[in-house]
Design a binder for these strands. Sequence first.
DNA 1: GGGCTAACCTATTCATACG
DNA 2: CGTATGAATAGGTTAGCCC
Length: 251
Amino acid sequence: MEFKERDQDRKLETDMDWHHNTKLPYVPRPDSSLSFFYNCNNDNNPYPEFTFILLYQLAFLFHSSCLLVSHMNEQMSVPTKDNGNKEKKKRLTNNQIELLERSFQEEIKLDPERKMKLSRELGLQPRQIAVWFQNRRTRWKAKQLEHLYDVLKHQYDVISDEKQKLQEEVMKLKAMLSREQGFGNQTYGGYTEISGEETVESTSEGLRVSNTARGKSTIEQVADQVYSPFTVEDYNNTVTLPHCHWPVVPY
DNA sequence: GGGCTAACCTATTCATACG
DNA sequence: CGTATGAATAGGTTAGCCC
């Protein structure tokens, strides 16, 4: 079967889920407009009864399928841009949303049993429950990304400030060094024969930094703080966690 | 392995509420 | 009346099941 056709079938099934309680109509005997099917009783036919039964069944099937298609189109409200009986979208009530929200906070994924339970409790179609959960997960992920962006931006700002301070300090120290060199090679305080880089190490700020100098620089350490708690794996884990541990965010 | 199915996802459409 | 929001659809992917 062509993929597109299969997909359409699947859509149909999904829609049948939407109208899971749809009952097929009683199909009456084909009407007179199909009477040509029954006019098989002529002299040239050696098996009039057999032909009648065969044609009757064919006619019945044809008529049934016609009725079935029209019934399904009617019942399923197949969204067509031009028909007048297109079903209007309705907002869910506050009570419905409240219960759905509570259920979502318990578990962001929806198992079939819970779907049916919610469907019964809320008087909504199972398909509507599934769609609501899908949309809610999308909003939840968007909020998570937004939150992650805020955290990263804050940490970026902290690093930026630190960098700015360090650059200003380097400038000051370079200026001091220039002045010092103006006095020749005489010692000045504790500094002798030092480069600009090392000067930073010797300042109070630099001393603070040097406490951690055994391993990584401040920036590297801050960078670690920025990136380590937010690995892709962690993010994926939060997304696939069975329970919503992320702070509840309004959507 | 390939077909089928159900559930999921992202992107999009469209109706509705609201300032 | 324009915009934001949310319900619903379209089309694609994936995993599980069966043959």
